[in-house]
Design a protein around this nucleic acid. Structure first.
Length: 512
RNA sequence: GACUCAGUAGCUCAGCUGGUAGAGCAACAGACUCUUAAUCUGUGGGUCCAGGGUUCGAUCCCCUGCUGGGUCACCA
């Protein structure tokens, strides 16, 4: 990079870096710096009448208030911030005052990492702080951070351009209060989920991400190429068909938490790669799965938020089990007044017309029902609600309903007007499965580019025999959104997908 | 993909339908030994997203493109 391209402040910081080296101070020391305390804990554990506590803390300088021969700074470590008091004669007991006058006052900047050895005290204004006795440079920052100031919990000049925040998430995490908390909570959510599945005796597994056939869901896949085999491969759109093969193989329960990839649109609730948890348990049905799911989610909510409620926008959502259960046809009857039970495709099409919906001739009965639900019902279920018994046309991997013809043993869990989970009593009849795949093929030939392919290998697995099984998929990103009160998926992904930065790319190419 | 809004200093933003740009914070120089959005004095910092067009003259008007936001469509 050419120095002339650097901003004034970047040039100055590089000069400070050199000045530190010239003084014999390594701006990037190699040795371990032994930290004995963290900001948050120091404040929580402080007692005014306790004996003086010696601590060593380390972190990033976020604010400096220099007042001649003494100064305050705010140090940010992994748990929060703590104020540091530095007096010149304390860190420079000898005649040489360079460590304070030159290093601290001139060569260090906001964003630099330092270590502070000192003791904990309370200032005259009442703030618990560390009185520095030793200052160590731990890492020089050459690029100025955005300065966000906080007073009484209110942020001033916050760094809030979404493009910059998502492209440079590291900066967002450093300067914007609360961003890190979302991701810490995401981690707790996944841990709680994993712990509960583990406690239930189920096995966490990993199945292929590169698949020669992208099955298990209706979605356009990403295609890639394997050179050695000279074949095109797909990035998986679901883990379903491989996990069921493991059920065939004799596992009691298997689950996988991992990324799926769908080559589709991006918006507030869709990212091309997203995280799903899929679970399959032998000898269970979808009724059992509803019971299991509502307890699972209640516990996750408590693990994340300390209670079984969460607030998203103006809605307070309770994850306390049990959840309301209603069949999709009853839901439609409730919201639109139309009873679709036993109606033919043409009759339903006529109802769509009465409801002033735009429908296409290629849509079959199941698709029409789904459209009505999506249009008039889906958004109205704010509290967790199991929508059950979907039409067979939309559910090629689901067992037929034990008593309702044309419907399947499937549920989707709606929360805050969005699908959070999708589950079935899994279809384990290989002949029926083959016929369903063939029906998908017919849809595909009619122009449905999301119809599933026939997976002969999966059918062969079913032919060896799969026990009755229930399975579920839960969208982890959406669950995290709900439990952290976020309304866009970008806020719960560290690095949401964005278009490449054109300028930066061009620059790098000219450098090579 | 459609419509719409936006892009100005390191950050957050002003900028009068046209005359080559301002503030706060940050930075720099100085003062200050309990400050906390520290304060006080002074200084520097700009490819006004890019490329065309109109004009004597464009940050501003027009066109195209890039990037992002919002709404809608797509995503069972």
């Amino acid at each position: 990079m050419n120095v002339s391209e650097l901003s004034e402040q970047e040039v100055l910081r590089r000069k400070s870096l050199q000045a530190l080296k010239d003084m014999g101070i390594d701006p990037y020391p190699a040795a371990e710096y032994v930290v004995t305390a963290y900001s948050k804990d120091i404040k929580a554990e402080f007692k005014d009448d306790a004996p003086q506590r010696e601590v060593t803390v380390a972190g990033r300088i976020m604010l400096r208030r220099i007042m001649g021969k003494a100064s305050f700074m705010e140090l940010q470590d992994s748990k929060g911030r703590i104020q540091i008091y530095i007096s010149r004669d304390e860190i420079c007991p000898d005649e040489n005052k360079d460590m304070y006058n030159v290093v601290f006052k001139k060569l260090l900047d906001i964003g630099d990492f330092v270590g502070i050895k000192g003791y904990v005290f309370r200032t005259q204004m009442g703030e618990i702080s560390v009185h520095a006795q030793e200052l160590t440079v731990l890492g020089k920052s050459l690029r100025p951070l955005p300065i966000v100031k906080y007073k009484d919990g209110v942020a001033y000049d916050s760094f809030d351009d979404p493009e910059l925040r998502y492209r440079q998430r590291c900066v967002d995490l450093v300067v914007n209060d609360g961003v890190k908390d979302i991701f810490l909570k995401r981690s707790r959510i996944i841990k709680s989920l994993r712990d509960q599945l583990d406690a239930a005796g189920y096995t966490e597994v990993e199945t292929p991400t590169l698949q020669s056939l992208a099955g298990g869901a209706a979605a356009r896949p990403f295609i890639t190429h394997h050179n050695t085999l000279d074949v095109d491969l797909y990035l998986r759109i679901a883990t379903e068909l491989y996990l069921k093969r493991l059920i065939v193989g004799g596992f009691e329960g298997v689950f996988e938490i991992g990324k799926n990839f769908r080559n589709e649109g991006m918006d507030k609730t869709h990212n091309p790669e997203f995280t799903c948890m899929e679970l399959y348990v032998q000898y269970k049905d979808y009724n059992w799965m509803m019971n299991f799911t509502e307890k699972l989610l209640e516990n996750i909510c408590i693990a994340a938020n300390g209670c079984s409620e969460t607030k998203v926008g103006d809605n307070v959502i309770s994850f306390k089990a049990p959840y309301k259960r209603i069949s999709i046809l009853d839901a439609i009857k409730e919201k639109t007044g139309y009873d679709l039970e036993g109606k033919s495709e043409d009759e339903i099409r006529a109802i769509c017309k009465e409801l002033k919906m735009e429908v296409e001739p290629s849509m079959g009965k199941g698709k029409l029902i789904d459209e009505i639900f999506g249009e008039f019902c889906e958004g109205t279920f704010i509290q967790p609600t199991f929508i059950t018994d979907y039409p067979v046309e939309m559910s090629p991997l689901t067992k037929m309903h034990r008593s309702k013809p044309g419907l399947t043993e499937r549920f989707e869990l709606m929360v805050n007007g969005k699908e959070l989970a999708n589950a079935y009593s899994e279809l384990n009849d290989p002949i029926d499965q083959m016929e369903r795949f063939q029906e998908q093929l017919r849809l595909s030939q009619k122009g449905d580019d999301e119809a599933m392919f026939i997976d002969h290998d999966f059918v062969r697995a079913l032919e060896y025999g799969m026990p009755p099984t229930s399975g579920i998929g839960i969208g982890i990103d959406r669950l995290t959104m709900l439990l952290t009160g976020q309304t866009t998926i970008q806020e719960v992904l560290f690095f949401p997908q964005m278009k490449p930065e054109k300028k930066a790319q061009a620059k790098e190419e000219t450098n090579e």
